[in-house]
Amino acid sequence: MEESAQTIPDSLVSEGSISTAFDSIWANSDFPTAPLSQFDQIMLSEDKIFVVLAVLTIIWIGLILLTWRTDRHLDGLERRLDDGINDEEAF
């Protein structure tokens, strides 16, 4: 158990859940075949909750970027408006 815990995440050998039938299939296979990288170990820990965090973070950053672009466009328009007013004053 100690040794297999290094390559197979706890989530793949859990028992007594709603998916026991599937569990037994996967627990008996040698899946996954390659040792997991550090990154994979983190992402697959805690029953893969960090994958949900990653997905939510992508959406959050995406919404920030869109708002950022809108903001920059508005900055440009404000500058144009100011320039126009200054031109009128100059005359």
Binding site: S14, I18, E46, K48, V51, V52, V55
Partner: peptide
């Protein structure tokens, strides 16, 4: 409910 392979990532249904 937990489903194997999917685990907590089933919650991505709400976002993806």
């Amino acid at each position: 409910p937990r489903i194997n392979i999917l685990e907590h990532t089933a919650r991505n249904l709400y976002f993806h």
